[in-house]
Design a protein around this nucleic acid. Structure first.
Lengths: 238, 238
DNA sequence: TAAAATATTAACCAAACATTAACAATCCTG
DNA sequence: CAGGATTGTTAATGTTTGGTTAATATTTTA
C-alpha cells in the first residue's frame, strides 16, 4: 500500500516564519496546510481531515486557545501542539486545560519539533483502536442507532438518547461482555478524569440502567475500581 | 483502599535544589526518594518500584543519560523526565534517544513541572490499562479471568475477586509450582514492604485458600521466610 | 429570550475493599 | 526444647467507591 503522508494544519500569523516552518515540514514528508489566522484556520480545519494541528498562541482576531476550543468541539481526537512566544506559565497551563498534547516555546529547534510531532502521531495511532465507524448495535432486545441517538426496544417507539447517554452506551456496546474501563469513558467522552466527571458518569450509568430495564438479559455490571461491563445473556448468535 | 501516592525517584546532585524540589513534590502528594548522584540513583531504583524518574543531566560520576540507559535496561516502561541546565539541542535529542518522556530546562516553573508529571503519569496509566498481558489462567479446576476479576470453579457461578485478591492470585499463578517471593508481591501489589502490608498479605492468602478449597489438588503453601507457592497436583497437560 | 433538554454538582447511603488488631498455631534457632 | 519470629485466621474498624435522587447550572432550541 502506498504510504499516505500525514496532514498537518499549521496556523501561524507571521508569514515568514509560517512559510519557513511549512517548508521544513514538507521536506520531512508531511502534507501541510498553512493558515494565517484563527478564522482561516478553523475554516480549513472543517474542510479537511488533519492528523495534527500546530497553533500559534498569539494571533490577531482569534487566538490559539479559542481556535483550539473550536477544534475540540468538532473533533475530540486530533492532537494539538501550541507554539508560545515565551515560556509563560499561564499560557502553558491554559494550553493543557484546552486539551493540548504539547507546547513549544519560540524560538525552538526544528528537530525538536519534528521529534515531538512524530512521538505524538505515533501515540495517537496506537490509541485509536477504538472503532468509530460502527454505529449500530444490537443490545439484547434493544437496538441502538448511535448516529441518530435512538434506542429501540423490540417494536416500540424509539427512546431518544442525549449525546452523553448515547456515547456512553455505545462505548459499553463496543466492549460488550468485556470491561469498559472507567478511565476510558472519562477521557474519551468527558475529556477529563476527576472526581466530578466520575460522579457524572455514575449518574449516566444509572440512566442507562433505567432504559435497559425492560430486557432482563441486559445488564450493566460494575467492576469495583475498574469500570463497567455490559453483559448480554442468552445471546442467540453473533 | 487507601489511595497510594505515586512514587518518584529524584536524582539531583545539588543538595539544596534537590531538597527544595523534593519538598515541593511531597507537598503535592508524591512520595519522593532523593538520590544525590547516578550511582545512588540506580541503587535506589532497583530497590523500589517507581512511577516516574526525574533525572538531572549534569552529575558527577554518572550522568543522567547513563543512568537513564541503565534504568531502561531494567524497566522499559517507567517515564523519565530530564532536567537540563540549559536548552541545549544535543542534550534534548540525546535525551529522547535514551527514551525520555520529557525534558525541562532549569530554571523552570514548578507548576509546569507538576503539570508535566501529572500528564505523563496519566498517559502511562491509560497505556497500561490496555495492556494485553496474560490475564487468563487455569488453576486446577478453577479458571481465573484477572481482567474481569472472576474466579470460576468448573461450571459454577463465578466468584468475584477484589483487586488485591485478584492480583495476588494472578501473581501466584504466574509462578505456578514455584516460589513467589513475599517481597515481590509486596513491592508490586502493595507497593510497600513493611510489617503491616505483610500482615495484610497474609490475610489475603487466607482468603484465597478459602476460595480454592473446592479443588483438592490446588494448594497455597508457605515457604517460611521466603514466600508462597501455588501447587497444582495431578495436572493433565500444559 | 424563555422553555426544554442536557449536564453537573451535591448529598446521603450502601456496598466493596483494605487494613489493623488480637490471638492461635507453627516454625526455626540457639 | 524454650522463646522469639513468622504465619494462619477471624473479626473490627476504616476508607474508598458506587447507586441514587434531586437541586442547580449550562446549553440548545423554538
Amino acid at each position: 500500500m502506498e504510504e499516505v503522508n500525514k496532514k498537518i494544519l499549521l496556523v501561524e500569523d507571521d508569514p515568514n516564519f509560517g512559510a519557513v516552518l511549512k517548508d521544513y515540514l514538507v521536506i520531512n514528508d508531511f502534507e501541510v496546510t498553512l493558515a494565517k489566522n484563527g478564522m482561516e484556520g478553523f475554516e480549513k480545519f472543517k474542510k479537511d481531515n488533519f492528523d495534527l494541528c500546530i497553533l500559534d498562541v498569539m494571533m490577531p482576531y482569534k487566538d490559539g486557545y479559542t481556535l483550539a476550543r473550536e477544534i475540540r468541539e468538532k473533533n475530540k481526537e486530533v492532537p494539538i501542539i501550541f507554539l508560545t512566544a515565551k515560556s509563560m506559565k499561564e499560557d502553558v497551563l491554559k494550553g493543557y486545560k484546552v486539551g493540548a498534547d504539547d507546547y513549544l516555546n519560540k524560538p525552538f529547534d526544528s528537530e525538536v519539533l519534528l521529534m515531538k510531532i512524530k512521538a505524538i502521531i505515533q501515540r495517537k495511532a496506537s490509541e485509536t483502536k477504538t472503532d468509530n465507524t460502527k454505529f449500530e448495535f444490537q443490545i439484547g432486545k434493544f437496538h441502538l442507532n448511535s448516529k441518530l441517538r435512538f434506542l429501540t426496544f423490540e417494536n416500540e417507539e424509539p427512546i431518544k438518547l442525549s449525546p452523553k447517554e448515547n456515547e456512553l452506551l455505545k462505548m459499553l456496546a463496543l466492549h460488550e461482555n468485556d470491561l469498559m474501563p472507567r478511565e476510558l469513558a472519562l477521557t474519551k467522552i468527558w475529556r477529563d478524569d476527576n472526581y466530578f466527571t466520575s460522579r457524572s458518569m455514575d449518574v449516566y450509568i444509572a440512566k442507562l440502567r433505567k432504559y435497559l430495564k425492560p430486557d432482563e438479559d441486559v445488564e450493566i455490571l460494575n467492576i469495583h475500581g475498574e469500570g463497567f461491563r455490559l453483559v448480554i445473556k442468552n445471546k442467540v448468535s453473533e
